[in-house]
Design a protein around this nucleic acid. Structure first.
Lengths: 218, 218, 218, 218
DNA sequence: TATGAATGAGCTTTCATTCAT
DNA sequence: CATGAATGAAAGCTCATTCAT
């Protein structure tokens, strides 16, 4: 029986679903923070984007900063979760590295907000993450996986030895990150559009060549 | 924009007060923008830091944005000027690449504000640099130099062929940039202090190994 | 206003939950109002303090103001009730005045919230009490008792005549009230800690001397 | 020559007089704080009352709290200044005490805001005055004068000995203060209008009688 | 009786910028 | 060349109160 109980309000009142509201806010906040950074983000706009009352944001997340931290934590959880889906541990080392490189590249392209969020957090000297205990747990498995891969490759005689997995990860990520995150300044100073599909493909090729060219024994 | 009306004297004379004020403002602005980003920077604080009246900032630079652009332009001019001092063109290719890698790393460490400025500009989608004609001219010589180096190395039979100098430069810069610019988040997620002298040295070694390991023919 | 529907049992039974909640709220509200005044008090904090849902406060008391009135009424009822226990009417006049002075002083010290509540109410021009019929009934007996005392003392030839009991009460209360209620400003301007046990004792001595020194015929 | 220089703006721009603006703000703030207390006062209303831009308030006084302190300091300076005009030191002791009592009473009646300001400050536990070095200096001369008076009276054989000037001052002030500051609650509980001219006169008589009745040797 | 979810209005404060001299 | 005075717009955040169950 359709609801004819009330004299239909102009706007349907939002259903009282706490979890749903929180998720909506989180998504809206991610967009806003990504576009404008922490400082430039406006709580009003987040409320608009999420179509909730601004007050509700403060009800669930106590301040703009805590909201930012929640967004950050979720961003890390998301990328690590996606990485887990790669099942790198079950691949041949060389292929696994290539796959991780591609994944990193593709993920950064598909999630430009991830880069901006990290930039913001670093501008603020990591003071949000410093208060988070969750983040470290989320991220350590990746390094373990990478360490295992390097060791397997070395034993198989195909990889160099003595490689620090964190250094390697930072290099892979850095080559992708810098290109994408700084694409506007790079475009401006080099006068070349870095964001065409072709340019993207060339960048990935280059990155893979560099990493594997370095890693593989001749 | 402020006046650039100096008659290029051989020995730098004591700058007139006008120029002096501009330089002071520029330095103060660089600090402030570096610490807080474009959005977080406060014109009031820049005035305080420079110890000039706030109104004077608007007299010389018409707005916060134009001031930011001036700071950016100077930042690029400074790093390219420093690069020029390396005289890479007169070195053996292999050594030149190693030198450029070291220089990039050292410069980023000595000038952390450079990284933050670029991050800010990219957060704002490069809209300041897009209005600057000077920047492109400042930066193109570097790529030319690099292209020449790669070609010389290839002819000498020590470098791989088919390497895009821009790709290479982005890789070198990216490996340094990401490590340093994102050091707070990386420290947080990996639980390792990346800013000790030892860590710095290890990073530079790793970067050099990767770049040369990739570049040199076996 | 909350229900006062008890059937006056001889021995106080364990209050039903409803009444218990009301009492808890009332006590919590008294604390909060005392510490922060009416304007500074927060309904949220009252709920926290009482460990009840905020909505419940509105269920029992219809608004913050009505809650404040309830607290006020109880505060007056409490002090007058305590005064009744003194049985002044059965004492020699001189002793009774001394006893009342001591009692007033001690009560204010034991119940600092009473002072703050009155201050708040007066800041708001007594608009809550103005709506209360109970309060006047609660307070008139005291003045009657005092009038009787003064008359008895005069007849006995030990007190001056022509003394308005209200004036006398206001003087006794005022000398205690001002010292205690304004102790922070007085301490600040005179640079003396007024709240030590010794200072308290001295104040009471002084007050008693003034009142009896004035009252007693030589 | 009358100003015909400009095409008369709709509202005459306020003359740029820093001191004048600050004084206007201070007066407006005093009114607002007096009527509503610190917590209840609204910066918007202060700006309206002073007919200045709200921003200007923050330009001169850095926050609501600092503004409140400025108002407090001025209030104390004003009353002590007025007391100085009494030249108590040059009067016969007995007359001087009577004069001080009258003055205190009259001043409180003429400046009800003084009472409210002190109440607010005490509600907040004197935390503003605690940060003020000026206030103590402002207030100490009064006590010195009073001490001298008491000593002179004692030497003349007309006053009791052993009287602490601070205790005496607190009693005089307290009898006036409590009556006036708490007049709303007192009216409510005693059902008598305490603010008629006749009532005022009676109160002053009573106060003088109490103080001198206590002070003078028989 | 009791409660978690939600809100409109309004608060103090901040900011880049301009005015008047 | 330089400055103190002044401002409109908007930001983050808070509050008493109500909705829906």
């Amino acid at each position: 029986m359709p609801s004819h109980k009330k004299a239909a309000p102009v706007t349907e009142p939002r259903p009282r679903d706490a979890d749903r509201s929180q998720q909506t806010i989180l998504l809206a906040a991610r967009e806003e923070f990504a576009e404008h950074g922490l400082g430039g983000a406006r709580v009003d706009r987040i409320a608009e984007r999420a179509d909730v009352n601004k007050r509700l944001i403060y009800y669930y997340f106590k301040s703009k900063d805590e909201l930012f931290l929640a967004v950050l934590e979720k961003a890390y959880a998301d990328i690590r979760e996606a990485e887990n889906q790669l099942h790198l541990a079950e691949m041949p080392p060389s292929l696994a590295i290539r796959r991780l490189t591609e994944f990193t590249w593709d993920y950064y392209i598909a999630h430009p907000e991830f880069l901006t969020l990290l930039n913001s957090e670093n501008l603020h000297q990591g003071r949000h993450l410093a208060m988070s205990s969750r983040v470290r747990d989320t991220n350590s498995p990746l390094i373990q996986t990478l360490a295992d891969l390097l060791e397997r490759g070395r034993k198989d005689g195909i990889f160099r030895g003595g490689i620090d997995p964190i250094q390697l990860y930072v290099s892979i990520a850095g080559m992708a990150y810098f290109y994408l995150s700084n694409n506007h300044t790079l475009s401006a100073i080099f006068g070349r559009d870095l964001m065409t599909p072709k340019a993207h493909q060339e960048r990935l090729s280059h990155m893979t060549e560099v990493i594997l060219g370095y890693l593989l024994r001749d």
